[in-house]
Design a protein around this nucleic acid. Structure first.
Length: 576
RNA sequence: GCGCCCGUAGCUCAGCUGGAUAGAGCAACGGACUUCUAAUCCGUAGGUCCCGUGUUCGAAUCACGGCGGGCGUGCCA
């Protein structure tokens, strides 16, 4: 497989460097960067290698640049590089190179020129992980959508990817649910809308325990009974988990998110006690005030932040479960890496369990991939227990409803069922894109209009570009065949062709720092380039190679948008 | 107290592994549809990149110190 433009330019640049007078004096391991030019007036790619080298070589940067340019052999890739400003070297690709690349990526129907990784890893992705017996609220959307997208991208790049929904099916909340089930349950409501009924009793009990000390104790004893294996409580617990999973599955189906496994906290129950014993044996953990703790005296920032893995009353905590989960993933799944897509407030927790894993001699690449909070209007965290948090299902309903309004307005003649199907793609896509197009650590204030916008840099903008690629082939009456000779007449065509080629440079970049918004931004730029092309370049009204080239650009834009949106977990529609 | 994250146009946000005049969208104003989907395109206007100091040929980006906001910090998850 051939390489991206930036990789090829980088190779040529290294060649040039090795031919210069100062080749022997280059810093060891010097790897010049070739970046996409920020501004078209500077060509297509640029490097600041000369300026980087000026200091160690004790030379004037422009002198260095001049010599690099002199030795640079562009082959048929680009024109003679030019020097600009304080010592930039700018590269402008040849039209033939652009044309050749277009043909190459068209031939690569599944990956569009994106190279798969040389050393595939087994990556476990831990994301979404809602609590059972409570429906997902807006706060769960980030983990679910970001995690799903990272999983799709890792898989696309060739990693063995395992997604695991580590649901909270064993927490202390079950004390309250058990009591509520026994005392407040409305059987008819349970049969009718099980998830809602579970939420209702949970909220009711939660509210009562705030006032009622005795009830708190009763709930606690229900929990203890469950943990001790009480048959009735276990039965209720199983039913709750079952019902909740079905409710969650409905949301996941709608979001087009799926998991390879659903190994919740309860799965690890048997493994907790032996794990703590083992940590004690190895002197990694010790007793302190009755609890079993791991201390980190040698780690800056954690000196006074022990991790508790067994409470004084013998109970285990989520740190214990998470450690057992790491064992399982490493031993059973042979994971090389585990990626946790979890909210930023849990930074300390993950620092601790990663450190413990290290103390145990485990060497897997454990990554905490945090995201910022969704805040309420008061700029405070949207709290799960505040009672009136916005439910995810409601957000999706509202999104689809808003999309439907526009679809009906724009396409009054469409069958209602088709209108609804299109609205579903647009509405859900809009919600996902709103999340994925922004940097994951940015906090934001929940706002319907913001989250569900349909104008500007949103999913509908990208979907519209895709739809326009399809409209052309519908009108043409046949599918794309094969392009033999690419010719360019307009700047808009070359800009689009270059953008298409850069898909291969963009996708791998997402996993460097786990930022799907890098891909979202790229797709937005691609859609913009296509919309400009659309305005400037009629396709069906021109003839010959030019028409074939433009059809190819349409086809490749459609493929790239479909694949790229697919990597974000966003579906496409043929019309809108 | 200590730790982590955020602070960029009126609003919502990109850009942050140092690079050229800091970019989008929304809102405002002005243009372009007998045309392959105008959910589009083109243009105008809008900035102490929170403040200060430092490193550097070069800082929104890195370091240090502040300020403002959010979150976390031994027996919830």
């Amino acid at each position: 497989m051939s390489k991206t433009f930036s990789a090829r330019l980088q190779e040529a640049l290294l060649q040039a460097l090795s031919a210069t007078d100062f080749a022997a004096d280059l810093p060891e391991g010097f790897a010049p960067k070739v970046d996409q030019a920020q501004n078209r007036q500077f060509g297509d790619y640029q490097t600041n290698a000369a300026m980087m080298l000026a200091k160690p070589l004790k030379k004037n940067p422009r002198e260095v640049a001049a010599q690099i340019i002199e030795k640079f052999e562009p082959a048929d890739l680009c024109d003679e590089p030019t020097m600009a400003g304080p010592g930039f070297i700018n590269f402008t690709l040849k039209e033939d190179a652009l044309a050749g690349e277009l043909l190459r990526i068209l031939a690569d129907e599944s990956h569009h020129g994106v190279a798969t990784v040389e050393d595939p890893k087994t990556v476990v992705l831990d994301f979404s992980a809602p609590n059972v017996a409570k429906p997902m609220h807006v706060g769960h959307i980030r983990s679910t959508i970001i995690g799903d997208s990272l999983g799709r991208i890792a898989r696309f790049l060739g990693h063995r990817t395992i997604t695991d929904n580590h649901i909270g099916d064993w927490g202390t909340q079950f004390g309250m649910i058990l009591w509520g089930w026994k005392n407040l349950l409305d059987e008819d409501a349970l049969a009718e809308k099980p998830v809602e009924e579970l939420l209702r009793i949970y909220r009711e009990v939660n509210a009562r325990t705030k006032e009622d000390e005795a009830l708190r104790e009763t709930c606690k004893s229900e929990l203890v009974a469950l943990q001790a294996g009480d048959e009735e409580n276990l039965k209720i617990w199983e039913t709750c988990v079952d019902v909740s999973k079905q409710g969650l599955q409905g949301i996941y189906d709608r979001l087009d998110v799926s998991f390879d496994h659903w190994l919740g906290e309860s799965f690890y129950n048997d493994r907790l006690a032996p794990l703590v014993d083992d940590l004690l044996d190895q002197k990694i953990a010790e007793e302190s005030d009755g609890a079993i703790c791991v201390f980190f005296p040698e780690t800056k920032g954690l000196e006074d932040k022990p991790a508790i893995i067994r409470k004084a009353d013998g109970g285990f905590l989520y740190a214990t479960t998470d450690l057992a989960t790491i064992d399982y993933r490493l031993n059973e799944w042979k994971a090389d890496a585990v990626w946790y897509v979890v909210g930023a407030p849990q930074q300390l927790h993950f620092d601790q369990i990663f450190k413990i894993s290290e103390k145990r001699g485990q060497s897997a690449d454990l990554e905490f991939i945090p995201f910022g909070s969704i805040l309420g209007k008061d700029r405070k965290m949207l709290r799960t227990r505040s009672g009136d948090t916005v439910q995810l299902a409601d957000v999706l309903d509202e999104a689809v409803e808003r999309a439907a309004k526009v679809v009906i307005e724009k396409n009054p003649d469409l069958e209602p069922s088709e209108q609804q199907a299109v609205a579903e793609v647009i509405g859900i896509g809009a919600v996902k894109y709103a999340e994925l197009s922004q940097y994951r650590l940015t906090d934001y204030i929940f706002d319907w209009d913001n989250m569900l916008a349909l104008k500007g840099n949103t999913a509908p903008y990208l979907l519209n570009a895709y739809v326009r690629t399809r409209a052309i082939f519908r009108k043409l009456g046949e599918d794309y065949t094969v392009l033999e000779t690419a010719v360019f007449e307009e700047q808009a065509e070359k800009d689009l062709a270059l953008k298409l080629a850069q898909f291969a440079e963009t996708v791998p970049q997402v996993l460097v720092d786990f930022k799907p918004n890098t891909l979202a931004n790229y797709l937005y730029e691609l859609a913009m380039a296509y919309h400009r092309f659309w305005e400037a370049c009629p396709v069906l009204r021109v003839e010959g190679d030019l028409r074939a080239t433009r059809l190819a650009l349409c086809e490749q834009t459609g493929r790239t948008l479909r694949t790229g949106l697919g990597l974000l977990g966003i579906r496409t529609t043929e019309f809108m």
